[in-house]
């Protein structure tokens, strides 16, 4: 059977890809996709440690809370994007500078 390291490597790869999406994408929805990738990688880590080095289910509960927070975050983020699109007719995160004074 595969061990803990394999899962940690997969989740590290997902985390770095999500980070790359956040840093390089201009479209706000794509940035949100990057955030979702990073949240998924964190959840995978929690479940892997729960399986291989704790012997209990606490890690799975943490991953469940990550899913809940990701859902709430996606809903609020998309509402904000809608407003941004209404105000500035763009979904480019660089153009969201209304607070810049």
């Amino acid at each position: 059977m595969h061990n803990l390291t394999v899962y940690l490597l997969i989740s590290a790869a997902l985390f770095l890809l999500g980070l790359l999406a956040i840093m390089t994408r201009k479209n706000a929805v794509s940035v949100l996709m990057g955030i979702e990738l990073m949240l998924n990688s964190a959840g995978l880590n929690f479940v892997a440690f729960s399986r291989f080095s704790s012997g209990n289910l606490n890690g799975q509960v943490a991953a469940l809370f990550i899913v809940i927070i990701a859902a709430a975050e996606a809903a609020v983020a998309l509402a904000i994007f809608l407003n941004l699109y209404r105000l500035k007719a763009t979904s480019d995160v660089d153009k969201a500078d209304l607070l810049q004074g």
Binding site: A28, V29, L32, M33, E36, N40, V67, A70, A71, A74, A75, L78, F81, L82, L84, Y85, A89, S91
Partner: peptide, 19 residues
């Protein structure tokens, strides 16, 4: 939640924020 919920939300977001 992810495939059935968040992804649908993201696709809605793509369509609602582009002309």
């Amino acid at each position: 939640i992810y495939v059935g919920g968040i992804l649908i939300l993201i696709i809605f977001g793509v369509f609602l924020t582009s002309s």
